[in-house]
């Protein structure tokens, strides 16, 4: 009990030395002044709301096939036109948004949690554990770009859930590297020694004291990783290795419609634009928070 109290006291004093509260306010202030971050943030919010509640307002279902209205250009009835089966592209894009966002968030959350845990442990314990873990990460990083995801999907089979696993595994090394780097610098701070000195265990130190101090570069990484995850996942679906037809996943829609480009260019245009907007939103927001968190920026 006495130990605990002492630890809390140290916590309080370190808070005074490391004014986390003030720096949070500072962070919001910088973030609000960063136009790119604001645009990105609002776009993400907009996309989330539209894909969550949008489907309730749609009159055309995603798989309402109407062969009398095939390949229609955009009109009042079909805002973004229809595809080769006469399905409403606008409705499909709205539904597809759900898939895109879920895949993006879940895969990055999964990969992020595993990667951060590995990275923090690696940096904190150092020595042989560190060497082995970092070599393993190097091996994963040796598969460039979409190739690792492709290999994983070829093992697990083409399916959107497997795409989530694939993208998660693919994003582990970058999280692990960043978490490790930050942990190494936090580990050297005096107060970690102090907390250990009063008897706090490794797990407690890692979760309560190291993690909060390494979180900001990880948030930036997570945001930018969602952008990459959306690109990778839609790419796999475009290759026919992710979401399968008739899924309205955006990459799958592009794959579905690309044979009809001669007759109806809008089929390939709009799902792609949707991907660009979603990826752009996360890139803008990620760039913005990175600038806001950068101590050099004012």
């Amino acid at each position: 009990m006495a130990v605990l109290k002492q630890e809390q006291k140290i916590n309080l004093t370190t808070k005074k030395q490391h004014p986390r509260l003030r720096s949070m306010k500072d962070f919001y202030r910088k973030l609000k002044r960063n136009k790119a971050a604001l645009v990105g943030g609002y776009l993400i919010l907009f996309l989330t709301i539209v894909s969550l509640i949008g489907p309730y307002f749609l009159s055309n279902g995603i798989n309402d096939v109407d062969y009398t209205a095939r390949l229609q250009p955009p009109s009042a009835e079909y805002w973004l036109g229809t595809d080769q089966h006469g399905r409403d592209i606008f409705s499909r894009i709205i539904y597809g948004g759900q898939i895109t966002l879920i895949v993006g968030f879940l895969s990055v959350a999964l990969g992020g949690i595993v990667g951060v845990a590995i990275g923090i442990a690696s940096g904190y314990y150092g020595g042989k554990i560190d060497t082995v873990i970092m070599r393993l990460m190097d091996i994963l990083l040796a598969f460039p770009g979409i190739l690792l995801a492709l290999a994983i999907v070829s093992i697990l089979g083409p399916d959107i859930v497997n795409v989530i696993y694939a993208v998660a595994i693919y994003s582990i090394p970058s999280f692990a590297r960043i978490a490790r780097g930050s942990t190494l610098s936090v580990k050297k701070l005096e107060y970690i020694d102090a907390v250990r000195g009063i008897g706090a265990g490794d797990f407690r130190i890692l979760v309560r004291h190291v993690l909060p101090n390494v979180i900001s570069p990880l948030i930036v990484q997570a945001t930018l990783s969602i952008a990459t995850a959306i690109l990778t996942a839609s790419g796999l679906s475009f290759l026919g290795l992710g979401a399968q037809p008739p899924s309205p996943e955006w990459g799958a829609m592009l794959n579905d419609g690309r044979g009809y480009m001669h007759d109806a260019g809008h089929i390939a245009l709009f799902p792609g634009l949707a991907i660009v907007i979603a990826v752009l939103a996360f890139n803008l927001f990620g760039d913005g928070i990175r600038d806001a968190l950068d101590p050099k920026s004012k």
Binding site: G235, F238, G251, R258, G272, I275, V276
Partner: peptide, 14 residues
Amino acid sequence: LFGLSMPNFWLGLM
């Protein structure tokens, strides 16, 4: 920013 947010397969199609 647009360039790096664009899927290369879509740019290719366009």
